[in-house]
Design a protein around this nucleic acid. Structure first.
Lengths: 196, 196
DNA sequence: GTCTATATCTTGATAGAC
DNA sequence: GTCTATCAAGATATAGAC
């Protein structure tokens, strides 16, 4: 058995989990090593043993988040052949992340908003996330038009970027309204528009 | 002459200007009294004379931003009678804020992302901003459908919220891509979709 | 209304014992 | 790999002179 998914998370993973959740809730400038210390039950200095700087920790958090996102995208494409179903499943990622976790943001959404506060290293990982997502969506939109499953005017990439922007924005605006089903509603509206 | 728009800004206004710009760039958790001090050329303690707490400053910044936004919305409605033209002018607000200022975010967009870090007082002002914008947009979308100028399916409010989310999200995603004309492109795409 | 000075706390990070 | 102890810097905020 190559993976030991049943054993409890390593300290390193616990730190990454805590950091990811803290960033989603309070942003990169809104969390500290002390917060992680409390959450994981380990001293600040021990965190530095695993991630010597905050930037290094940030890079690792975004990398892991991107890897998981990529796995989800691959899973969608292997589960669904129709672009319409793929897009619906994509929306469901955002809905689940938001609705199931008391209106938590996309990790990379809040980091993008804080771009100017990030080290170059973290920012580069951030860009990779958005490049991956926009490329995937563009491909889906192209297929959708070819198969006449999705209705839109103009360029597939423009539509993909607008779609991605809408979902990221929905998480942000939904927080301001403290609306638990905001992303679900926006997602449904977006899909409806594309099936016109 | 009732207004003295030619005289230089009061210290209070200078502080508000600095705070607004700093928040747009680095977020609420990303700026300090020291930053304002450097920007305005005044000591930290003097800022406390005008705004005794950071929360108080935050409230004032959002209130002023909202007032200006409201004035813009009123100006649009008095300048244009067509819903389509109103919506186009609304998009232009976001485009101008983003493109002219090296990809600066909507003040309330980044604050919404940082919701959990805000005092209740600041958060309440934030909600007012989004309520005002969504109500205005809903009204425009209703008129647009009645006059057959805008094409969309379903509820006007849902479309208004999706539209607002798209613009807010475009500013965020555009930052990740370091794309100077991202909001303009997304805005054009959104308008095209509504004129289908 | 602005300043100097200071208080108090928190931050990211390091040194060194175990 | 985790701990205690400590650091220097930066944070919000206050006291009191001018």
């Amino acid at each position: 058995m190559p993976t030991d998914s049943h054993i409890s998370a390593s300290t390193r993973d616990k730190i990454l989990n805590a950091a990811e959740n803290l960033i989603k809730s309070f942003g990169y400038n809104g969390f500290s090593y002390e917060d992680i210390s409390k959450s994981v039950g380990i001293k600040k200095s021990s965190i530095h043993h695993h991630f010597s700087t905050k930037s290094e920790l940030g890079v690792a958090v975004v990398q892991r988040y991107s890897e998981r996102s990529q796995e989800k995208l691959e899973l969608i494409e292997s589960n669904y052949s129709s672009p319409k179903a793929c897009l619906k499943a994509y929306v469901e990622i955002f809905v689940a992340a938001y609705d199931n976790n008391s209106q938590e943001l996309c990790l990379c959404g809040i980091l993008a908003a804080e771009s100017k506060s990030l080290s170059q290293e973290v920012f580069i990982e951030l860009q990779k996330f958005f490049t991956m997502n926009s490329n995937w969506l563009t491909s889906i939109f192209k297929q959708g038009k070819n198969l006449k499953e999705l209705t839109y005017v103009g360029d597939a990439r423009d539509q993909a970027l607008a779609f991605l922007s809408s979902l990221e924005g929905a998480m942000v605006v939904g927080k301001a309204f403290k609306s638990p089903d905001f992303v679900k509603k926006i997602g449904a509206t977006l899909m409806k528009d594309l099936l016109q």
